[in-house]
Design a protein around this nucleic acid. Structure first.
Lengths: 257, 257
DNA sequence: CGGGCGCGTTGCAGTATGTGCAACGTCCGT
DNA sequence: ACGGACGTTGCACATACTGCAACGCGCCCG
């Protein structure tokens, strides 16, 4: 909506791919160098980009500070974290926590597997939305129109032969997931990796987050992983209870008689 | 330099303090509501802010993705992390890694103490620059003019009676730190917390980061903590060696015949 | 039940503000 | 010493941003 700001913000994902000099930024933005310069200067003043010694620009450390403060506003993560750790200590595999936001599903927390073979993922990285177990849970709970709208707009890349092929199949899967209250991804993203996931719900029963356990099938078979499902569901339920117990605004916690 | 972008970016730290509605944003920016709306919309399109169900705005999850990608460009952190973990496993206390950037010192990594009593800090949070041990190391290595300029512009809050009181004392301390190659903070930030820190250097000997060990003196006395200094210095030296060995661009790692 | 207030949203006219151009300075490599 | 590449500056033009005023909507209170 605002051209100038739009251009300036487009620089950030561009720099996320690696440092770039003024010319490259200007070219990839499709604007004159002097324009790019002024935008970069403004970003620089706010600490969002940093100019390294070779004069090239890269993302600035202030982004950390902001992201860090952003996460502190997400109560779910705070509450869930100890549960994720406990779950990880008990079963050893990688544990993820994800939320839905504006058509995307993002990991907001992760506890690494204690086994040497680890799957690749990254906190903050958008999830493979059409196949990930956590994504299914989060999308399954959306109101019907939004769910359909999102499903229609998605791409359905065939990561493996078991990936979700199209919107129809996806919506059908979502219906099943909504029904059963848990989800799996059996080799849909990477051939050898399986996940089981369970939803975290708020006071009104809406799904606010989803947690999953992932393991390569060289470590555990899909059947063994499914055997962990009750434990995962219990953990998610515990987080849900704790989350629902939280007052919407906790300034009142000790005030009332 | 660019008014529009400047205003838009000013919204981010504002929202970092907590969710706000349109009116509040407009007021705190000093602009008309319609202006604030358009800025927020643009930020929203880029995923930097998110509109929650009560229509208020808060920081968006995309900030995570960006911050995460930003950190992947910081080789120091990648290299240092396992060393921080190892150090923590050996001594149990909180371990920090910090860098200097544009007049600020920021923690970019942290491994929590295994003891129940923990100090408060946050990855991404600007460090108390006038007293923290890591800050002293990073500033001590700046070229003389910049060091003086930064020191002059700083505030010198007296967190405790042992805080650095003014620029003169700070510069003197920095000289000493540069001389000895390590630094301490003995109750300068919080009365009961002590730190020891050592520098991570690059190929040219410049200090690129600093690592520290912190502990409250109810757990270890300052003397005991100082006893850990050799270990901390050895760890920092190991990181330095590994960092200096890294190729500037690692696309060549397996390509050459 | 109905009026009024608060908040977000829209279209519009005026102009502040961002844009691209061209010229300059500087650094680096030849 | 010269040429090129890159970052930087000042400026005239017009684009795109601003603030205003009016509208729609939901909520609370009378």
């Amino acid at each position: 909506m605002s051209q100038t700001v739009d251009r300036a913000l487009s620089i950030l994902p561009l720099l996320a791919q690696g440092p770039a000099d003024l010319g490259q930024v200007a070219e990839r933005l499709g604007v004159h160098k002097s324009t790019a310069l002024r935008l970069l200067r403004t970003l620089h003043e706010h600490g969002l980009v940093y100019r390294q010694e070779d004069q090239r620009y890269r993302l600035g450390a202030r982004l950390f500070a902001l992201a860090q403060e952003a996460v502190e506003n997400l109560d779910v993560r705070e509450i869930a974290h100890p549960h994720l750790v406990a779950l990880n200590e008990r079963i050893g595999h990688t544990v993820h926590l994800a939320v839905y936001e504006d058509g995307e599903v993002l990991y907001i927390d992760k506890v690494e597997s204690r086994y040497p073979v680890r799957m690749y993922s990254r906190v903050g990285k958008p999830v493979a939305i059409t196949v990930a177990a956590v994504a299914k849970l989060l999308l399954a709970d959306l109101p019907e129109p939004e769910r359909r709208s999102v499903a229609d707009k998605l791409d359905y890349p065939m990561y493996t032969s078991r990936s979700t092929p199209n919107a129809a199949a996806f919506l059908k899967e979502l219906a099943a997931v909504r029904e059963q209250g848990w989800a799996t991804d059996l080799g849909g993203h990477e051939e050898s990796i399986n996940c089981v996931a369970a939803p975290v719900t708020g006071t009104d029963g809406r799904v606010v987050a989803a947690m999953s356990v992932s393991a390569p099938n060289v470590v555990v078979t899909a059947e063994e992983l499914l055997g962990l499902l009750p434990l995962v569901r219990r953990t998610a339920a515990a987080v849900s209870r704790e989350y629902s117990g939280t007052l919407p605004d906790n300034t009142e916690q000790e005030g009332s008689p």
